[in-house]
Design a protein around this nucleic acid. Structure first.
Lengths: 117, 117
DNA sequence: ACAACCTTGACACACCCGTGGTAAGGTTGC
DNA sequence: GCAACCTTACCACGGGTGTGTCAAGGTTGT
């Protein structure tokens, strides 16, 4: 068993995630640890750091794993990012006053509720 | 009442969305029609085209309104897109074989279920 | 003034997300 | 060989998403 790699429960303890969530995060393609010959997950220093910064990323901007997963798709599927970009590019660009960005709260309030718990 | 602008039910009929969904899409900040002096939504040609291409965007890539809404946040909140980008940039870049992108199906299958209905 | 629109707000419902748990079975260390 | 890990695969459950519908009230055209 390699020395500088932690098992899932050890990694869970030092990162603050639960073992359950580490498997979920892996399934979402966000942090994929290597495996031992028998299939055990092995979290190295790089993965541990990534898990900690992931937690900060979510908290700092009120987003969820799903959003980061979508960011991953955007960066790996050129066709998708082009299509999304093209749709926004065609935005009516109405130079309206835009008094207060109300839709911002709409996108964020769901996660702020989660954080409150 | 302006001539080249449709009311919400007319817009719904020509775009295939329901009136309910047009309000929902507006709340998400994706297509925001102008308003008549009395508060009625007025959908011009630009908004109608945007609604149609939005439908295509969702169907073509198996994404939802939430994902497009996140794309909107990414393009409007520089701090957010920088943070997400930075997180991905630190990716372990393990030049592993990567046989088949299995996580791709994970992100898409939820929406493909929706499409099947 | 009345019918036929529009508005916001609320209730409802199925399904997905984030999370925990548990069961059945393979690995590892002593 | 047994305790203590690990694996995948399920069930559960509160809250969010995407959608419909309904109520109460304002606008508009005739």
């Amino acid at each position: 068993m390699p020395n500088d790699a932690l098992t899932i429960h050890e990694a869970a303890e030092t990162t603050g995630w639960s073992a359950r969530m580490l498997r979920y995060i892996e399934r979402a393609g966000l942090v994929e640890p290597q495996r031992s010959p028998s299939g055990y997950r092995l979290y190295g220093p790089a993965e541990l750091q990534r898990l900690r910064t992931l937690r900060e990323l979510l908290n700092a901007h009120g987003i969820g794993l799903q959003e980061v997963g979508f960011g991953l798709r955007l960066r790996r599927e050129r066709e998708l990012s082009d299509a999304v970009e093209a749709w926004f590019e065609a935005e009516p660009q109405r130079p309206q006053h835009v008094p207060a960005p109300d839709w911002l709260r709409f996108e964020q309030e769901k996660h702020s509720k989660l954080l409150a718990a």
